[in-house]
Design a binder for these strands. Structure first.
Lengths: 116, 116
DNA sequence: ATTAATCCGCAACTAATAGTTGCACGTAAG
DNA sequence: CTTACGTGCAACTATTAGTTGCGGATTAAT
């Protein structure tokens, strides 16, 4: 009955900071935790933890390059996440429409009864 | 540059428990914290706190009825939330498409240079 | 009307998680 | 070799989800 949603994925993208990180990675391409933290009111370690969360659900991947760890977005996974967002929104919309339809039906039957 | 999203609204619907509460309210119509908690592995107070959060961002409203407080979904606000979900998903999709387009352009120019 | 049963909000406590600082290790460059 | 940079790991703090335990208010029962 409830929308079929991957809760781990949701809580990953539910965090505003992590959405910002995804945005930054999409805008700037593969980046390190250090360079990402430079433009944010966060320490490198905080960014690193968020990237670890995103990595764990597969939204980003780390590529070791020398002494750096360069993170990049997994496009397929992000597309999947976007699809889930759309799906939840669509489910709610459908429910709202159904409720509205039922409410209108009740309204109609009430008017009929009044008319008798 | 970042997607224009109401962070409070997002963190409200980012929580799995709160999404479940919204689903239940949509399915069962206006309900009290007590009746909602009956079908969940949560105490009434926990449900009450979540409802307070949802109330604060305007996704639900409480209607005092005798000794009860009956909560119902604000349909307009939920529709707005659904739209934001869709919007973020669409933004990511657009970015992914743009990246893919650029990648292909680079690929093409590389092939051209090779051909010289 | 008095008593009992609900439904609720408020406050104190606990558990989990975001964020911080500090340190030690590996890699790159002088 | 030494200096500097990027990283991970561990300990600490702060905020938040969840619990329990009250006391107040409304409905129902005797």
């Amino acid at each position: 009955m409830s929308t079929p949603v991957d809760d781990e994925l949701w809580s990953a993208i539910g965090d505003p900071t992590r959405r910002t990180l995804i945005d930054l990675l999409l805008a700037s391409g593969p980046s390190t935790a250090t360079s990402l933290s430079a433009g944010l009111p966060l320490t490198r370690q905080a960014v690193s933890k968020h990237l670890a969360v995103l990595d764990r659900v597969g939204l980003v991947h780390a590529e070791p390059a020398g002494r750096e760890r360069r993170y990049h977005v997994d496009e397929a996974q992000l597309a999947r996440a976007a699809a889930q967002l759309a799906s939840v929104g669509a489910t709610w919309d459908a429910r709202l429409r159904r409720i509205k339809r039922i409410a209108e039906a009740i309204e109609r039957s009430r008017n009929n009864t009044e008319g008798e």
